[in-house]
Design a protein around this nucleic acid. Structure first.
Length: 816
DNA sequence: TAAAGAAAGTTTTTT
DNA sequence: ACTTTCTTTA
């Protein structure tokens, strides 16, 4: 009966689930049950509307989200006997599946055996191109080049178009254009696609080949897209083509949670959805079920400072809850320790409660890992170094890639001498030189070199011969024809063939004569000498690596047991699943970036490192739009919390190994003071802010008015002073040029409002955290002090002038 | 060629 | 601080 999937929903959610036909836009605020609605909608389509599961496609951004969605749908449909499951997939794996099926119809020489290059592979290739073109990596940073090429690709510019444009800009662009051209050629000869290509080629396939478009339109009659605000133009095009015929497209998104503009996400995809799809029905989900009123109030107060925003009315019937909690730590280590202790306290109260620690950058994770270990808390860590990014795992994967496609030169150069087998730089240079001359892949060149050694030593030739034998043997296990080019016979049947609906079934085909994936993985670890080399090291590090390889074997065994599709799929998976490593659902703590937290929820959330230049990140300081994105990110982070929200910052923190004074984030300024509980030891930044606001509370409304002001992005050193100044002005005091001109209720050293007593030596010299006055630059904050005596140098941040390095003796500084 | 030691670069967020 | 890459030495 219908009520099964509708009865537990509110009116809007029910609307969203039961309006199954035509374009549907769901604007879903944080915690409003968006995942729940999608899952219910899928279940409803299958159980009530009798739509065949294979006619439904749900697309998410991350594997985690896809996983979650699959789980929910399965739970909802557990009493139904289904012959198959709906396709729930990320954009990228959807594209891989389409391309593994049909890429040859594009007629641009790519074959179905193509290799996927992840960011690291692609970076290696770019470095090679830079080298071959004779560019200096210092002048043309590989990273920057990669990102320039990636954005060109995402804009739809091919190397020619890019070059045409670059010609008229500058040398650097022209150089990038040349790298781009070579990069594309190399990808092609390697039969490799990078992450961008996956989308580009899939879109091109759907656009150019009507037959393929038709096929997928018939297959996917109902399409759902999660996190629609973060789609880019390629993803938009993909959806457009897939849904061309039936128009049963349902997208879910929230403008306030758009945090991937830097990756090309185009918010207008959601803002203009109604234009793109006529007859769109729009439904708003505004009741939040996740968080306490207080948490929503705080998050709302922050995001309200964004100008580029339609605004919405998110409400909850949940209790008010506790105030959010604030802690000012001395440094990053103290911050982490404090957080760990708090989590322990919470778990004493409630033994199985879960917490997440959200930071802006992955580099912050380390201290937290350390602190959790010390506190004896089991933790998950998401992102950063994922399992598949470990060196040894990547090496073995490279061997496996070679087994399938020996012409993958990136994989080959990765492992040709790891473990060390006597193929050194000279040998490799010679091979590379000849491969360029003859326009052969490295693999082909090696075969040739063995026959015609020319100026290579017998020792080198022997090493090459044995390496070649190893790869050929792996290839045989994988069922690959090791001829000169990867042959099409090696293609295993596609993983989900698109058949007529009635004969559609769970997809068949466990690979035929080939060995199980786990056997090939074992062989790649043993026969290559990899294990022996690690064992002989006898270090803890090597043991750790061996364990990781054992994990890889375990993963392969699991894979075989699931009866999946063989080695290629296993490898695809490893490229696309960056953080799938054993996510322990019940671990006490999860550590991740605020970005990775999107879509998740936890009873307890810690947002750490709320400091100027860190969160918001300094890279976003110049552009108001980017600052707004940072603010949305903060909003996403805060709204992950169900019951308890903690915000912390440190007074100083090591950056590149140097200790720098840091200031509270402006986002802290934007939180309503009366909703914050200060747990800091001694006097904190917050206690000053609070002291001020109690001077004259009835002007508070006035203050709020002014606080909406976002036009200016505060200079780091000046932000709080600016903040105080504004408040003072609001309070009718004449604008003191310096903070100290105003009256302080509880004033310990008005001239250093944010410096905790401990960093204040009080002795002569300017310590980091103190303020100075310079005859030319004016007032500034001392960030760093180096050297001693006459040569003491200070790094000072002057608003409007940036950071200056001054010799203390000659700079003529005064306290300010 | 491989290992050990020195220097330089790194950190924004992700499929 | 930590990791990658370059340079020196055995």
């Amino acid at each position: 009966m219908e009520s099964d999937f509708l009865s537990q929903l509110n009116d809007q959610q029910r609307e969203a689930v039961s309006n199954t036909e035509g374009p549907l836009l769901i604007l879903a605020g944080a915690g409003s049950g968006k995942t729940r609605v999608i899952a219910h909608r899928i279940a409803y389509l299958i159980a009530e509307k009798k739509v065949a599961p294979w006619n439904i496609l749900a697309v998410t951004f991350t594997n985690k989200a896809a996983e979650e969605m699959r789980l929910r749908v399965q739970r909802l449909l557990k009493d139904h006997q289904l012959s198959s499951w709906p396709v729930v997939s990320t954009f990228h794996s959807l594209c891989v599946r389409i391309l593994r099926q049909d890429i040859e119809k594009l007629n641009d020489k790519y074959t179905r055996t193509f290799t996927i290059y992840d960011q690291d592979d692609s970076m290696r290739l770019i470095k090679l191109c830079l080298k071959d073109l004779g560019y200096d990596e210092k002048q043309l940073a590989p990273r920057a080049t990669q990102s320039a090429i990636s954005s060109a690709k995402n804009r739809g510019e091919d190397p020619e178009a890019f070059a045409a444009r670059a010609e008229f800009t500058d040398d650097r662009q022209a150089a990038i254009a040349r790298v781009y051209k070579m990069y594309e050629e190399r990808l092609h000869t390697n039969n490799a696609l990078d992450f961008d290509d996956l989308l580009i080629k899939a879109v091109r396939l759907l656009r150019n080949v009507p037959e393929v478009r038709e096929k997928y339109n018939n297959k996917f009659r109902y399409i759902l897209v999660d996190e629609y605000q973060d789609t880019n133009s390629l993803q938009f095009a993909l959806i457009g083509f897939l849904t061309e015929k039936q128009q049963n497209i349902c997208v879910v998104g929230d403008e306030d949670q758009s945090i991937y503009k830097w990756r090309g996400a185009d918010i207008s995809n959601i803002l203009n959805f109604e234009k793109h799809f006529p007859n769109t029905r729009t439904i708003r989900l505004e009741q939040n079920y996740r968080s306490t009123q207080t948490i929503l109030d705080v998050a709302g107060a922050v995001v309200k400072n964004n100008i580029e925003r339609k605004g919405k009315n998110l409400w909850t019937s949940n209790p008010r809850g506790d105030k959010i909690r604030y802690y000012q730590a001395l440094d990053a280590e103290a911050e982490a320790r404090w957080v760990a202790n708090k989590i322990v306290e919470h778990r004493r109260e409630e033994f199985d409660t879960r917490a997440a620690v959200l930071y802006r950058t992955n580099s912050q994770s380390r201290v937290f890992e350390e602190a959790m270990r010390r506190a004896g808390l089991a933790y998950n860590i998401i992102g950063g170094f994922s399992f598949y990014e470990r060196m040894e795992v990547r090496d073995i994967i490279a061997y496996l890639k070679l087994a399938l496609n020996p012409n993958d030169s990136i994989a080959l150069s990765r492992v040709i001498n790891s473990p060390p087998r006597g193929i050194g730089k000279q040998t490799l240079d010679e091979i590379e030189r000849r491969s360029k001359d003859l326009e052969l892949s490295l693999w082909e060149t090696i075969s040739l070199v063995i026959k015609q050694p020319e100026n290579l030593s017998a020792r080198a030739i022997n090493a090459l011969r044995s390496f070649r034998r190893t790869i050929v043997r792996l290839g045989e296990m994988a069922g690959t024809d090791m001829g000169s080019a990867a042959s099409d016979e090696a293609v295993q049947a596609g993983m989900w063939s698109v058949k007529q609906p009635d004969e559609q079934n769970v997809d068949e085909h466990v690979s035929d004569s080939d060995s199980p994936v786990s056997d090939i993985v074992r062989a790649a670890i043993l026969d290559t000498g990899y294990e022996t080399a690690l064992r002989s090291e006898k270090t803890d590090e090597a043991d750790g690596r061996l364990e990781n390889l054992q994990e890889l074997v375990n993963a392969a065994v699991d894979y075989d047991e699931q009866g999946l599709e063989g080695l290629r799929d296993f490898i695809d998976h490893s490229a696309l699943v960056s953080d799938q490593d054993a996510y322990k659902r019940d671990a006490a703590v999860t550590l991740m970036t605020a970005h990775s937290a999107k879509g998740l929820e936890f009873p307890i959330i810690f947002i750490v490192g709320l400091e100027d230049g860190l969160f918001p990140h300094s890279r976003s300081a110049t552009d108001p739009a980017e600052l707004e994105e940072e603010r949305r990110l903060a909003y996403v982070a805060m709204t992950r919390a169900e019951r308890f929200l903690y915000v912390t910052h440190a007074m100083k923190r090591r950056v590149y190994g140097e200790e720098l004074a840091s200031e509270p984030s402006q986002f802290l300024n934007e939180m309503p003071l009366d909703l914050i509980d200060d747990l800091s030891l001694g006097k904190s930044w917050l206690s000053f802010a609070r002291g001020l606001s109690t001077i004259d509370y009835e002007h508070d409304e006035h203050r709020k008015e002014k606080n909406k002001y976002t036009g200016k992005t505060y200079d780091s050193a000046e932000s709080i002073a600016e903040f105080f100044k504004q408040r003072n002005q609001q309070m009718g005091k004449t604008s003191g040029t310096s903070v100290s001109a105003t009256s302080w209720k509880q004033k310990p050293r008005p001239q250093e409002p944010r410096t905790p007593p401990s960093t204040n030596t009080g002795s002569e010299g300017f310590v980091p955290g103190s303020y100075v006055k310079h005859s030319k630059y004016g007032r500034g904050l001392v960030l760093r002090r180096e050297g001693a005596g006459e040569s003491t140098k200070l790094t000072v941040s002057f608003p409007g002038y940036g950071q200056k390095k001054l010799v203390e003796k000659y700079a003529n500084l005064e306290r300010a």
